[in-house]
């Protein structure tokens, strides 16, 4: 089976053609450098994404437009792509009490993945 992929490691945007060999390994062509092979393997075998979103702040309402109503948060490292929606649901279920400091861990080691969700700004 052959798959088409655009490498996003650098701005060149190489168009990769990836064939799966009988032993399950991947054969990559169309890449101009070795990073294309690494990208194709990660993207096809275990794709991951950085997740950034916002969390609810305990007590924050919508009465004052212009006020900061949500706390920006992010994962410490990329999280497996297929589980992103589930992780987002967990982030949206948070109700963060202030004050909070940048880097504070809001979700520790989500589902044993080793990935934490941290606050991306300080709010008091």
């Amino acid at each position: 089976m052959s798959q088409e992929l655009v490498c996003i490691t650098c701005p060149m945007g190489c168009r990769l053609t990836v064939d799966t060999l009988t032993d399950g390994s991947l054969e990559v062509s169309g890449n101009r450098c070795a990073r294309g092979i690494k990208y194709a393997n990660e993207e096809l075998l275990a794709p991951k994404r950085m997740v950034s979103a916002t969390a609810r702040i305990a007590g924050a309402g919508h009465e004052a437009l212009d006020a900061i109503a949500r706390l920006p948060v992010r994962t410490t490292v990329a999280y497996p792509k297929e589980g992103v929606l589930e992780l987002l649901a967990a982030i949206y279920a948070l109700n963060v009490a202030l004050p909070v400091k940048r880097g504070d861990v809001l979700i520790k080691d989500y589902k044993g993945s080793g990935v934490d969700v941290i606050a991306a700004r300080t709010l008091s």
Partner: peptide, 19 residues
């Protein structure tokens, strides 16, 4: 700009906008 991709040159780290 709560997405990441900021600061690779300035801080040698991939940060979100607020960070």
């Amino acid at each position: 700009c709560i997405h990441n991709g900021f600061g690779l040159i300035e801080f040698n780290e991939e940060l979100t906008g607020p960070e």
